[in-house]
């Protein structure tokens, strides 16, 4: 499948990936992540249920302390 991840085109061998699988492949191991798929927020407890498929627009935002 081809998706847009953080505004960049990316290709994966899988037809579908759960959010947790995607985060693992991309090595997004940070604690505080905001994930949006096609503009919709995916809550942390849904990371194993919600999947990403061909054509999806995915945002993964790493929140860091400081301000």
């Amino acid at each position: 499948m081809k998706i847009i991840l953080n505004n960049r085109h990316e290709t994966f061998e899988h037809d579908r990936l759960t959010i947790n699988q995607l985060l693992e492949i991309k090595k997004f191991t940070f604690k505080m992540l905001v994930v949006k798929v096609n503009g919709e927020l995916v809550r942390r407890h849904e990371f194993d249920q919600v999947s990403v498929k061909d054509g999806d627009d995915v945002m993964v935002l790493h929140l860091v302390t400081g301000g």
Partner: peptide, 28 residues
């Protein structure tokens, strides 16, 4: 300051106030 609080307001605004512009400061 705290990442947990940043998450809280992002989740709240996207969930309870859809369409409201939210400008986040992240990493400085």
């Amino acid at each position: 300051d705290k990442a947990e609080m940043k998450y809280m307001i992002i989740e709240t605004v996207l969930d309870k106030m859809p369409g409201k512009p939210l400008i986040v400061g992240d990493g400085m």
